[in-house]
Design a protein around this nucleic acid. Structure first.
Lengths: 137, 137
DNA sequence: TTAGGAATTGATGAATTCATCATATCGACA
DNA sequence: TGTCGATATGATGAATTCATCAATTCCTAA
């Protein structure tokens, strides 16, 4: 097909990558519930420790870590060590914008398809730790 | 993990799907260069025929069709038959917004990571048909 | 009423992503 | 300096997505 994939799959593989490939790759980075959840949590707080994220998501540490690694690789988050813990935050406020706009679109779509939105409050097994008021982001 | 996947992978599988899963699923629908490209083309025109999309992308018909099917399943586009041809358009203008916001984020990211944006004009094998001036969307 | 163009569907192997487990690194502090 | 808590990395099989090819449906016009 016309759309080359020869230059690699991240967004750093040389100058000649078409925008739509880079864009698709960005969406790939967002295309997992755990990663979306993490970004939502980070959108609502300046900086969150991995420990807190573990509590929030109920994930196994290595599993979360892999998803954080994906988010880092996509330059969506940045990590910083503070003494013994790692803290993550959004790399750019625009990441939160993207989630917000995605949500608006979803509202439209779900309205039309007769679905009801469910806030994150009633969700199975997401342990709500302090600071998380369950608001829909 | 805490995040259930038992309810299916589209956005229609019952009311109890957490927002972050639905959102992740939306991003999955966008996570392919062909689909992004198609949405970009549709963002710039009211309605485009499959024939034109074929010319634009250089894809094999069945391949394009599968991606169009994904976009339909995700409610991102709607199809309409006009005599012998199928015409596609964005299901909601918000779809275009999402692409625009994604682009802004990408500009930020690529600025930081020293990458240069490349317009779609110089891309290999994308046949530029009438109406497509190669502008970056 | 059938031939042909336009588009979709189905099937298949290849490639990618995911979840899980085991192991490794890094830093604080005893 | 050795050990423990915190996090990351590596390896593996399972699941999903992709690309390609063949077959099918739908429409139009001869």
């Amino acid at each position: 097909m016309a759309i080359s994939t020869a230059e690699g799959t991240d967004q750093f593989s040389g100058a000649q990558r078409p925008l739509y490939e880079v864009k698709a790759n960005l969406f790939k980075g967002l295309a997992h519930p755990v990663r979306v959840r993490v970004l939502e949590v980070l959108s609502a707080a300046d900086s969150v420790s991995v420990t807190d994220l573990l509590a929030d998501t109920g994930l196994e540490a290595s599993h979360l870590s892999q998803h954080l690694s994906v988010l880092r690789r996509h330059n969506l988050v940045v990590a910083e060590r503070r003494s013994s813990q790692m803290f993550y935050r959004l790399a750019y406020p625009e990441v939160a914008n993207l989630l917000t706009v995605a949500r608006s679109l979803l509202v439209k779509i779900l309205e039309t398809t007769q679905q009801q939105l469910v806030s994150t409050v009633n969700l199975p097994e997401i342990v709500s730790s302090d600071g998380d008021d369950g608001r829909v982001t």
